[in-house]
Amino acid sequence: MRITHVSDTYLPLLGGIEAQVSRLAAQQVAAGHDVEVITTTPAAPGAHGVSTAVEDGVVVHRVAARVPGGWPVHPRSTAHVTARLRAAIARGERPDVVHLHMGVLAPTVQAALRPVTRLGLPAVLTVHSVWGGASRLFAAADAVARWSRWPVRWSAVSELTAAPLRRLVRTDVAILPNGLDLDAWRVPRTERADRPEGSAVHVVAAARFAPRKRMLPLLAAVASAVRALPDGALFVTLAGDGPERAAARRFVAEHGLGDVVSLPGRLTATELKRLYARADVFAAPSSDEAFGIAALEAQAAGLTVIAHSRSGVAERVVDGATGLLVPDDAALTAALVRLATEPGLLDGLLAAATTPPSGMDWPEVLKTTHAAYTEAATLPSR
């Protein structure tokens, strides 16, 4: 199968969309498909122009412009996408499907969708982000362009992201979850008595230190929990980097949390696995988490999860059975205290966490994605 992915953001940027699209493309190549990615993300900061290279077996076509702030946008990206697809058709290499990946700000994908369908190419569009207030803008655009009526197989990475799309298109929206090599993330558990952090309940998080990820509110909840707990009951590691990391370091110093909180910076996958081997709980405090690939990695490693009850992570958690769901920061603090003071609760959650969520391993994700491609090919052109 010839598959063309279109995504404004791609590696070397790091985020949910970038990770999923690159991994999905690589998995499809490994399965024997002919895969191309078209993106407006430059290969390196400051790079610009049109380039094509093979990266991890995937043909990556980049249309990069010099834009203030380094945003991955290009004023003529739609023309480039259309021209490349037309050229492929002329060579006899017509894509069997064009898979477009959309966040909130995705000008290339949004503008290229209609030209793709007008070329008669099967199209799948996947929403990867929580739209929030942007839903009203998309509804207004639909009132003008009627994009919800175009022949597209609509999809999203979670029910959270599917809900606003479903209200607009008024038809079925497929769930195409992010994929993960679950076996690669299974790690042998180090019991608390043998850990360098001591016998404390070890809570971890791995996220960008940015407002949407809510790492600073998580730190505030940790500080409140520590005040309610005996010394040595809780240890917290917050891995990641970003614009709020300096503020996090100041918070730890100002609140005397140096012996309780570790901020090691961004960790590699191997370093995260080593961290998860000696941890108990993964915290995902953001309600704007569309899917939560980092939480899935932790779940695959055998950790239980505290997640915001309105997040995409919550869809993989049974409250009180496989993790804890919290509606706000006060409940997050209470959950941390419970996990550190109710050993029966934590032991039960960890026992249930030995079975990772279903449907997220790559063979299953590839099968689900291929089904969406097949359905896209049956849609009438219009």
Rank of each mutant, 00 (worst) to 15 (best):
T4I: 15
L13Q: 13
G16Y: 06
A30M: 08
A31E: 12
V37C: 14
I38L: 15
A47L: 15
V54C: 05
V58L: 11
V60F: 11
A64F: 09
A64W: 13
A64Q: 08
A65M: 09
G69D: 05
G70T: 10
A88P: 14
I89M: 06
P95G: 03
L100A: 08
V109P: 05
L121G: 08
V124A: 02
T126S: 11
L137T: 11
R146D: 15
W150L: 14
T161D: 12
A162H: 06
R166W: 10
V169K: 13
V169W: 10
V173D: 10
L176Q: 09
L180P: 11
L182Y: 04
A184V: 03
W185H: 08
P188G: 02
D194C: 12
G198N: 15
A205E: 02
A205G: 13
L216A: 03
A220D: 07
A221P: 00
R227Q: 15
G232R: 10
G240D: 05
G240F: 05
A246F: 04
A247Q: 13
F251E: 02
F251K: 03
A253P: 07
E254S: 09
A277Y: 02
V281C: 07
V281I: 13
S286D: 01
S286Q: 04
S287M: 13
E297T: 05
A298V: 03
A300G: 09
L303D: 06
T304K: 01
G312Y: 01
L325A: 00
V326T: 02
A330E: 14
A334T: 14
A334V: 13
P343A: 03
L349Y: 03
A351H: 08
A353N: 01
A353V: 04
A353E: 01
P363S: 00
L366V: 04
T368A: 15
A371Y: 09
T378E: 13
T378I: 02
L379Y: 03
P380C: 00
